[in-house]
């Protein structure tokens, strides 16, 4: 009988602590989750862009979800350059064919994958983009070639609504 009592006590303590922890967690989570992107931010999911004015070699920058998106109509030289690169030379190997389904059009987030700056057009050692913040060089397919950035610039979900309009998101 005297052996049994402490076990009962311990069980009660353990269940009380466990329930207490669940309670604290249940109160803490709303406080943490309120900082996540809210419904109004998530609602701004897609943007339609008119690209009829673009000539080869020109880039426009549009804002999508608060971030710049580069839309570039590439020249034949740029396409050839991007497609001739061997996979072994790339830090983050991705085929240009996968990044630009229509080779003329490159649509990507204009955000350096290092620390989020906006790279500059037609600069850098690979004739693509150059990030002024910490010196990352991207090629004509937006792939990282040199510098501290770990990944290629991201390709968002997009589609051609008609010949002149791209819908991003």
């Amino acid at each position: 009988m005297s052996d049994k009592k402490p076990e009962r006590r311990e069980f009660l303590f353990t269940t009380t602590y466990a329930l207490g922890a669940v309670g604290v967690g249940a109160v803490a989570w709303p406080m943490i989750d309120q900082m996540n992107p809210d419904a109004s931010v998530k609602a701004l999911a897609s943007t339609e862009v008119d690209v009829s004015s673009l000539t080869p070699g020109k880039t426009i920058t549009v804002l999508w979800r608060g971030k710049p998106v580069f839309i570039r109509k590439r020249t034949q030289d740029e396409i050839a350059e991007a497609r001739s690169v061997k996979m072994e030379e790339l830090k983050h190997p991705e085929k240009d064919e996968d990044r630009a389904k229509d080779p003329e059009w490159l649509v990507m987030l204009g955000v350096c994958t290092h620390l989020g700056c906006v790279p500059l057009n037609d600069r850098g050692d690979y004739n693509g983009w150059f990030c002024p913040c910490h010196g990352s060089h991207y090629d004509t397919s937006g792939r990282i070639r040199k510098g501290p950035a770990p990944l290629n610039m991201e390709i968002p979900k997009y589609e051609f609504v008609n010949a002149n309009t791209i819908k991003i998101g």
């Binding site: 943490i32 900082m35 996540n36 992107p37 809210d38 931010v41 979800r65 608060g66 971030k67």
Partner: peptide
């Protein structure tokens, strides 16, 4: 994204 409360600052 949690720090930003969105997809950018």
């Amino acid at each position: 994204n949690w720090l930003w409360g969105g997809y950018s600052v």
